[in-house]
């Protein structure tokens, strides 16, 4: 089993774990982590695909560098929105509705 194949499968798995997390967890910060995990999974797949050829594919690697910066921009904004929301509704932090369905 080549490292590229291994990391390709690991990247896809991390993406799926992130998706599952996004569906399951409720706290805002955990959701941000879940989205970040999905992004990391995609990046790992891209880096593994870049390593197919030797020397590695510079186009895919450049795409990941771009992606990293966009990911942290989105994360910073999401985290800031989450804390603004928490501040807005302070006093009633994220309490789950008992027995309710997904809203």
């Amino acid at each position: 089993m080549s490292p590229e194949l291994l990391y390709l499968v690991v990247g896809a798995t991390i993406w799926a774990v992130g998706l599952g997390g996004l569906l399951l967890v409720h706290h805002m910060l955990r959701r941000v982590i879940a989205v970040n995990l999905m992004g990391s999974g995609v990046f790992l797949v891209l880096v593994a695909l870049a390593a197919r050829s030797s020397p590695p594919d510079p186009v895919l690697q450049a795409l990941v560098v771009t992606g990293l910066v966009v990911a942290i921009s989105a994360t910073a904004f999401a985290v800031r929105l989450a804390s603004a929301r928490a501040q807005h509704s302070s006093g009633t932090p994220e309490v789950e509705r008992p027995g309710g369905d997904e809203s």
């Binding site: 399951l24 967890v25 805002m28 941000v32 928490a86 932090p93 994220e94 309490v95 789950e96």
Partner: peptide, 16 residues
């Protein structure tokens, strides 16, 4: 960023 936000976010009232 996340640790910073942890300081400001409300504690998890009910365990996930």
């Amino acid at each position: 960023l996340l640790f910073n936000a942890l300081n400001k976010s409300p504690p998890e009232v009910i365990k996930e």
